[in-house]
């Protein structure tokens, strides 16, 4: 069971991800959500989740900037609208890189990766 925080500046994206993850409630337990890098930073340091779903393009602080400032590093699954950050995401040792809109089959593969 992974304690999870969802971090995305678009409320619609978060609500959709919630709905998709509701099929994996045995694996993923959503404990909180954040709407920008700053908020995400605070909540991660405070609650120390096992996993985060992270958007990249956010106001105040981007996803990468937030990761750079973390003292505690959870597992990261990037979920973003742009594919140009894939290589960098790979360097960040993330679990996966999901392109929005997230497809159900693709998410299934990600969850399988997590379970290993």
């Amino acid at each position: 069971m992974f304690k999870t925080i969802l971090i995305d500046d678009e409320p619609l994206a978060i609500s959709r991800l919630k709905r998709l993850l509701s099929h994996y409630s045995a694996v993923i337990s959503i404990i909180d959500e954040a709407h920008n890098g700053q908020e995400g930073l605070e909540k991660i340091e405070a609650q120390k989740p096992d996993l985060i779903f992270l958007d990249i393009e956010m106001p105040l602080m981007t996803g990468f900037e937030m990761l750079a400032n973390l003292s505690y590093m959870p597992k990261v699954i990037f979920s973003t609208a742009y594919d140009q950050y894939a290589i960098r995401a790979f360097e960040e040792n993330s679990v996966d890189y999901l392109l929005k809109p997230i497809e159900a089959e693709r998410l299934e593969k990600t969850i399988e990766k997590l379970k290993k």
């Binding site: 678009e10 619609l12 994206a13 609500s15 959709r16 709905r19 609208a81 929005k100 809109p101």
Partner: peptide
């Protein structure tokens, strides 16, 4: 993307 999120 946003529309996808809204549909349900």
């Amino acid at each position: 993307n946003s529309i996808t999120g809204l549909i349900h």
